[in-house]
Amino acid sequence: MTSCHIAEEHIQKVAIFGGTHGNELTGVFLVKHWLENGAEIQRTGLEVKPFITNPRAVKKCTRYIDCDLNRIFDLENLGKKMSEDLPYEVRRAQEINHLFGPKDSEDSYDIIFDLHNTTSNMGCTLILEDSRNNFLIQMFHYIKTSLAPLPCYVYLIEHPSLKYATTRSIAKYPVGIEVGPQPQGVLRADILDQMRKMIKHALDFIHHFNEGKEFPPCAIEVYKIIEKVDYPRDENGEIAAIIHPNLQDQDWKPLHPGDPMFLTLDGKTIPLGGDCTVYPVFVNEAAYYEKKEAFAKTTKLTLNAKSIRCCLH
Rank of each mutant, 00 (worst) to 15 (best):
L303R: 03
G101R: 07
Y88D: 07
A202V: 04
T269S: 10
V278Y: 09
E40F: 06
H98E: 14
K268E: 12
T302D: 01
E214V: 13
E285W: 02
L303M: 01
D110N: 04
I206V: 11
K144R: 08
M195K: 03
P260Y: 00
P102F: 08
L162F: 13
T2W: 07
G123Y: 01
Y289D: 15
S108H: 12
I177F: 11
P254C: 05
D190H: 06
C61I: 11
R92A: 10
E235F: 07
E293Q: 15
P102W: 09
A57K: 02
G176F: 08
H10C: 13
A219V: 09
Y155M: 15
Y64T: 07
A148Q: 12
I220Y: 01
T277D: 08
I112C: 13
F100H: 05
G101H: 07
E214Y: 07
T118F: 02
L126Y: 05
G273A: 12
L128E: 03
N70V: 07
C61T: 12
P245H: 01
D66P: 01
D275S: 10
G267V: 06
A202S: 08
P217T: 06
G212L: 01
L147H: 00
N210T: 06
V28M: 13
D234Y: 08
L255N: 03
I137M: 08
R196A: 02
D266E: 11
V154N: 04
G274I: 02
F295L: 06
L156K: 01
T20Y: 05
Q42Y: 10
A241Q: 00
F17E: 02
R43S: 00
G18E: 03
L75H: 13
R91M: 14
Q184E: 15
E84Q: 14
I191Q: 05
V186C: 13
R71Y: 11
G27M: 04
L147F: 05
E8F: 10
T26D: 04
I220F: 00
L150G: 06
S3T: 14
P257Y: 06
K268D: 10
Q250P: 03
P151T: 07
N133A: 06
V154S: 01
F29P: 03
G19C: 02
P271D: 08
M261W: 05
T269Q: 07
K60T: 12
Y279K: 03
T26L: 03
E84L: 14
L30D: 03
A57C: 06
Y142P: 04
W34C: 03
P183M: 03
I270H: 00
P232C: 04
R132D: 13
P174L: 10
T118Q: 04
V222T: 07
P280L: 04
I170R: 08
I72G: 12
C311S: 15
V48D: 03
K80H: 12
H256A: 10
P216T: 05
N70K: 08
A202G: 15
I96F: 05
C67Y: 11
P183S: 11
L25G: 14
Y279Q: 00
K306F: 07
L192H: 00
C276N: 13
K32Y: 01
P271F: 09
L301S: 07
D85S: 14
P183G: 09
E129P: 14
F205G: 01
I11Y: 00
F100Q: 04
K81Q: 13
H244I: 05
V283E: 04
Q194M: 13
T62H: 12
D266Q: 08
K163D: 13
E95V: 10
Q250H: 11
F295C: 01
H159R: 13
H10D: 09
G19N: 03
V31G: 03
L35A: 11
F205I: 00
R196H: 04
V14D: 02
E211P: 05
K13R: 12
E290C: 09
N77K: 12
C218M: 01
K200P: 05
M261L: 09
T302S: 08
R71L: 10
Y109Q: 01
Y231A: 02
A39Q: 13
Y88K: 06
N246E: 11
K291V: 08
T119K: 05
E40D: 08
K197A: 13
M122C: 15
G38A: 14
H256D: 09
H10N: 14
P232M: 02
T26A: 15
L128C: 00
D130L: 02
M195A: 11
P149G: 01
I199L: 09
T302N: 07
I239Y: 01
P102E: 10
T20Q: 04
T298P: 01
D251I: 00
A294Q: 05
D204I: 02
L78Y: 11
I270S: 01
P174S: 15
P181T: 04
L301C: 11
F51R: 01
D104I: 09
Q182N: 12
I143C: 02
D68W: 03
P245F: 03
A286K: 07
P260S: 07
V48S: 00
K49I: 10
C152V: 15
L203G: 06
L99F: 12
Q194N: 08
Q250Y: 06
K200E: 09
E40M: 02
A296L: 08
L78Q: 10
L301E: 09
S161V: 10
E24W: 04
K228E: 08
N210K: 10
Y289I: 13
L203T: 02
L255V: 08
F100W: 07
R168N: 11
S169P: 08
P271Q: 09
K59D: 12
V31N: 02
M82G: 14
Y153W: 09
I111T: 01
G22A: 10
I308M: 10
Q184L: 13
I6L: 14
E235W: 05
Y223Q: 04
M82I: 13
P260H: 01
Q248R: 05
R132Y: 08
E47N: 10
D230K: 12
R132T: 15
G180S: 01
R309Q: 08
E24V: 04
T119M: 06
D68R: 07
P232F: 02
E178D: 09
P260L: 01
N121C: 08
V229R: 03
C152H: 02
P254N: 03
F295M: 07
P181S: 01
Y231I: 01
E227R: 01
M195L: 01
W252C: 08
K172L: 02
K197W: 09
K32P: 05
E290M: 09
T167D: 06
K297A: 14
E227F: 05
R63V: 03
A15E: 00
A240G: 09
I226D: 08
L272R: 05
K172W: 03
S108C: 14
K59V: 11
G273F: 06
G274L: 02
D114Y: 07
D130Q: 02
W252I: 03
F29C: 15
G212C: 02
I137C: 00
D130I: 03
S131L: 05
D85R: 12
D259C: 03
K13G: 01
N54R: 02
G258V: 06
G79S: 14
P181Y: 05
T166H: 12
L187I: 13
P216Y: 00
L303Q: 02
K213M: 15
L303V: 11
H33Q: 15
P271H: 11
E285G: 09
D193G: 10
M139Q: 03
L150V: 14
D107K: 13
H201M: 06
P87A: 13
D249C: 02
A296H: 15
R91K: 14
P102G: 10
H207G: 11
C311P: 14
G267I: 02
K300M: 08
G237Q: 07
L115A: 04
F205Y: 01
L46K: 04
S169C: 09
P257R: 00
H256M: 09
L69I: 12
D251F: 04
E36T: 10
M198W: 05
C310E: 03
L247K: 05
T145M: 13
P50R: 03
D230I: 08
E293F: 08
L272Y: 15
D107I: 09
K292H: 10
F29M: 14
A294I: 05
N54A: 00
K291A: 10
I127M: 09
Q94V: 12
A296V: 13
D107E: 14
V283P: 04
I239G: 06
R56I: 11
Y109M: 06
F73N: 10
T167K: 08
M139V: 01
D110M: 02
Q12R: 15
I199D: 06
L312G: 15
H116F: 09
L128R: 02
L265V: 10
T277P: 08
I112N: 01
A286G: 13
N37G: 06
D230A: 13
T20M: 04
T302Y: 09
N246S: 13
Q138S: 02
F113D: 02
I226L: 12
G45F: 01
E9M: 08
Q248G: 02
T298G: 06
A15M: 02
R168Q: 10
Q182L: 08
W252N: 02
K224A: 05
L115Y: 04
D107P: 13
F51G: 04
